[in-house]
């Protein structure tokens, strides 16, 4: 499980339509879906958003296996959200809505982060007027996820090899067991970040410096189509949400009745 963990959120180059789109278009669409997810409080429409995002990720991104890993990693958190809501409200259907929202928020972000190179992400932010220091920090943090995943795996393996047991004892013991992972992880992460900072200085990086990106970005025909389609769907769902919900519920009821017969 620890091996899947952070790998599930790492960018991997792939030959698929979603990867070829302009990062700005993808970021805008991810934002549209996130806003829609937050604003809509109907479970049927949330289900529709899940279906749309799934179709985007599977058909345009060919991210089937990666998405499964991603959801497996998120499953404990989603279960926790569901249980916490259920304990408060006592209504399982009402507790499902925040879980659905979490799922859709993560999938919206996935349409951007799983398909965009961290370097392109930095350039996108720069194009949006953010200073280089901040964009570089973003891009380095994203790249660091992969490094951290590898370090974490190696630490766990080193501790298991010296007879350290992670999953034994009560909850307090288990938490204490994980200090053997956290201490080297924190120290190594801090050292790595210091070494990155020193390397930047050695390479002449300074605050306020301007640079010319190696790759240039251009909004193309398919970028416009992608944004326009997503925006139209989102607007339609926001305006005609009630009607769509009724129609969806009717279809679902008929389907269930048909199944019962």
């Amino acid at each position: 499980m620890y091996r899947i963990g952070l790998e599930a959120f790492r960018f991997e180059e792939r030959d698929a339509a979603l990867y070829r789109l302009d990062p700005r278009a993808k970021l805008l669409v991810a934002f549209i879906y996130m806003v829609l997810t937050i604003l809509v409080n109907s479970q049927a429409i949330q289900l529709l958003i899940t279906a749309l995002l799934l179709a985007t990720l599977l058909l345009l991104g060919r991210l089937g296996r990666k998405l499964v890993k991603n959801l497996v990693t998120l499953a404990p958190l989603m279960t926790l959200v569901f249980l916490a809501n259920y304990l408060v409200s006592g209504d399982p259907m009402a507790s499902l809505l925040p879980t659905q929202k979490l799922l859709n928020l993560v999938m919206s972000l996935n349409t951007f982060f799983l398909t965009t190179n961290p370097d392109d992400f930095a350039i996108t932010l720069e194009k949006m007027g953010m200073p280089l220091t901040i964009t570089l920090a973003f891009s380095l943090s994203l790249r660091f996820i992969h490094v951290l995943a590898r370090v974490l795996t190696e630490i766990v393996e080193a501790q298991l090899s010296r007879g350290h047991r992670l999953d034994t004892g009560g909850i307090t013991t288990r938490i204490r067991n994980y200090t053997a992972i956290l201490i080297p992880l924190i120290i190594i992460s801090v050292r790595k970040s210091i070494s990155v900072a020193e390397t930047l200085e050695l390479r002449g990086f300074r605050e306020g410096a301007r640079h010319t990106p190696f790759t240039t970005m251009k909004i193309g025909f398919w970028d416009v189509i992608y944004v326009a389609a997503s925006l139209s769907i989102a607007t339609a769902l926001l305006i005609y949400g009630g009607a769509v919900e009724t129609a969806l519920l009717e279809i679902l009821t008929r389907h269930l009745e048909y199944m019962a017969i």
């Binding site: 190696e154 630490i155 080193a158 298991l160 090899s161 010296r162 007879g163 200090t179 201490i183």
Partner: peptide
């Protein structure tokens, strides 16, 4: 389980820092 095998096979990895805590 690894804990039982580790008793017989001891592996010293490349980066020693990863085992210290």
């Amino acid at each position: 389980p690894v804990s039982r095998l580790a008793e017989k096979v001891s592996i010293v990895f490349q980066n020693p820092e990863k085992m210290f805590y």
